[in-house]
Design a protein around this nucleic acid. Structure first.
Lengths: 110, 110
DNA sequence: GCCTTATACCTTGACCACTTAGGTATCGCG
DNA sequence: CGCGATACCTAAGTGGTCAAGGTATAAGGC
């Protein structure tokens, strides 16, 4: 199994990161997230596809159709310049946030 | 300002942690979170109070009225045994999650 | 030939935590 | 007396995620 629920708000930055690694189609993005987190994070398709459309609408991703490694039709995503900037800021935001939570959760430990 | 939006789902564990440090009233819990995270996290009251009621309903916190340091009526919260167990599991879950995200966001950095 | 699994896309409904924006009341300070 | 801090609360709206469906093709087992 692996892969409990996502903390709302982290999906976008994960997607941006995945696509920043190179042109990738939706299904592969889900797989990328699962694999690079060693099965710790599993993205539901009902969250993934709406998120992709959202990011595309915001101009952070660009889409075009292509053929996957297995020879099927697939919608490929590419990160835009705006998307790359957003990735940087969101990743920084995440880091600050995670550090802050870690700080709080470590409180009281002499 | 400091303190941008919370990532949904982290508030409960922060509250549990705060109260695990000792009997505390709601307003002080908000302050505790802000201070221990060095102003990185600010909890809106519209999120804080509902969360406290939620945790109390779930039996993770117990409440009773008392008098604050400044001499006012205040509703004090105490963590229950169940709450302490939940704190441990949620803190562990958070750590796994944060590690997983960090892993993903670090991908591709030789 | 069939069935399952994996690939690859999608949508709809419901939930629920959070934001925004109010509200009440008391106290101390200038 | 007004203002900020303390201390509690709620209601409406937003919006991301989950659960659960759906379509279609390809590969592999039996």
């Amino acid at each position: 199994m692996g892969g409990s629920d996502l903390f709302v708000g982290t999906l976008d930055v994960l997607i941006l990161k995945a696509v920043s690694q190179g042109r990738m189609h939706g299904y592969a993005i889900g797989r990328w997230i699962r694999q690079t987190t060693k099965d710790a994070l599993t993205v539901q398709e009902g969250a993934l596809y709406p998120a992709l459309h959202r990011l595309e609408r915001k101009g952070l991703l660009e889409e075009d159709w292509g053929v996957s490694e297995t020879g099927r039709e697939a919608k490929y995503y590419k990160i835009t310049a705006t998307g790359r900037r957003r990735l940087r800021s969101e990743a920084a935001r995440w880091k600050e946030y995670a550090d802050a939570v870690a700080l709080a959760l470590a409180a009281g430990e002499a």
